[in-house]
């Protein structure tokens, strides 16, 4: 048909020829397979190398259980705190006009440009030997460093921007009209937040929480520095993986790693569902961390 031939010629001018397309797609798929998919499948393959019994035995180990509990505890403290911060920051930044706002937004992203190891180091300097705070707190029986509070602090530091950076652009796009209408109809601040703002931002919030939680449970560098790696007490899952791996107990290390990889997969799936179903509502928050 002449019309379809003409169409094809028009399309060819603003697109690559089919063979070129397939070569580029092929290169991309091979690259993805080697760089991203292979590590993921390796984790599970290594975990089940000696069968499911060894896998389950590794997870039932006393220290592994303690590590899983500590990881859940740390995430259960640090993620809610960062949610409160993220919502407050987004509210203050998106609903009002004030001086220095752009600078503040840049500052919130600061932890992303700090090496995780340095994120841990700052708390070692603040609470460690030779600091003023550490010995003072210890005299009241409060241990920060090489204890749970230090791990929580370091985790909060590295996961600090996740919720805020999802919510700020989203709420800026949504503007202040809904809230002003609610206030003028007699709602107070809390009612406005719970009934008007929160329903508007819930998917963006969930998106930020997902990423924040994945990082909180998987953080390694910052936690390494502050934890002291006391087996069964201050080892989170990633630290326990490192200990097992360095003891040449690869199956046990990969078994715990498989649990974290599963968490990563669940995070990715939920994140993708959110993007596909509520892409419009998340539109302001494309990509990023």
């Amino acid at each position: 048909m002449p019309s379809s031939a003409a169409q094809r010629r028009v399309r060819a001018a603003t697109s690559e020829s089919r063979p070129v397309q397939w070569v580029l797609i092929g290169i991309s798929l091979v690259f993805i397979a080697v760089i991203l998919v292979l590590p993921l499948t390796t984790v599970f393959a290594e975990a089940f190398r000696r069968g499911p019994d060894e896998f389950l035995k590794a997870l039932a180990d006393k220290d592994a259980q303690a590590a899983i509990r500590l990881t859940l505890l740390v995430a259960a403290i640090s993620v809610p705190l960062n949610i409160v911060f993220g919502v407050c920051a987004a509210w203050a930044i998106a609903k009002y006009e004030f001086k220095g706002k752009a600078f503040l937004i840049t500052l919130i992203d600061l932890p992303f440009s700090v090496s995780p190891v340095i994120s841990g180091l700052v708390y070692v300097l603040l609470f460690g030997a030779g600091s003023m705070l550490g010995p003072w707190l210890r005299s009241y029986g409060i241990e920060v460093l090489f204890a749970v509070p230090g791990i929580v602090l370091a985790t909060i530091f590295v996961t600090f921007p996740f919720v805020a950076r999802e919510l700020i652009p989203l709420m800026q796009v949504q503007g202040t009209g809904d809230e002003e209408a609610a206030i003028s109809l007699g709602a107070n601040g809390w009612q406005t937040f719970w009934r008007v703002t929160l329903p508007n931002i819930k998917w963006g919030l969930l998106y930020g929480v997902l990423l924040c939680n994945a990082r909180a449970m998987g953080e390694f560098g910052a936690v390494t520095v502050v934890s002291g790696r006391i087996r069964g007490q201050t080892t989170t899952m990633p630290l326990q993986i490192e200990i097992l791996y360095n003891e040449y107990n690869a199956v046990a290390a990969f078994s715990l790693a498989a649990m974290l990889a599963l968490l990563a997969l669940v995070t990715l799936v939920l994140k993708s569902i959110l993007e596909w179903r509520f892409g419009d509502e998340l539109a302001a928050t494309n990509g990023g961390h």
Partner: peptide
Amino acid sequence: VDAIIDLPFALPTAVAGIALTAI
């Protein structure tokens, strides 16, 4: 493929580290 691009954001670095070493 689009979804899996974000894997390095979601996969803990220690897990990636031992997996890459094994490969």
